[in-house]
Amino acid sequence: GEAINALENFLNTYIPDHLILGMTIDTILQLIRGSASGSPLTIPLVYIYFFYTDQIIMNDLIDKNELFVRYRDEAFITWNHSEQQLSSLFSIAKSRFPEVKWHISSIDYPIHFVDIKVGHNTGHLFTGVYHQEMFYNDFLSSELNQLQNPNENIWNWLRKALLKAVRYCCDSVMFHSETGEIQRELLRRGHSEHIFDEALDEFYEDFGV
């Protein structure tokens, strides 16, 4: 029911003439009601529902100075107040959204949020690129190389890896550590160090540093 309400709001907001292929929003909701479970519509419906719950969580429950990020069914928040206040926040969130199942992990040890490594050093948040351990498993490497590097040349791969490093790393220390990872990965694939140095210089030059 909550998801259907969210869908109705969503359609009313984002479809200016309230029609899709000649069907009114009421018709669409009648077609969906009772048949969404297990259908390809389920996941988009869940994301539309989260789209509205995210706004409530951000506006009402989380301080403007904190970070709130969600990707699919995982969310990440920062918290600079007491643990007791954090537990009250979760109690309120659970009572307001009882249909959502909550599994909470802290970052006492670094974790990964999708492909971002997240942790803290004595309370200071850090982020970087997360590398799945299996990528370093030689037994799997040939298959994974094919998956990670389909029909691409090494220069594209390097540029993408460097862009990702800049986007994900919280500071220059993490960034330099990540460029080291990229370099090792390149050598592991049998390329020369010279290619890495050249690509890095070109990358810096492209971005004016």
Partner: peptide, 28 residues
Amino acid sequence: VNYEKLRKHVSIYDKNRAAAKKERSENS
């Protein structure tokens, strides 16, 4: 390397790309 400057320039690059993508999708 000035990392803050690099981040700033990559951020501008990302914003320009997102704006161009949005414009393309609106025109199509």
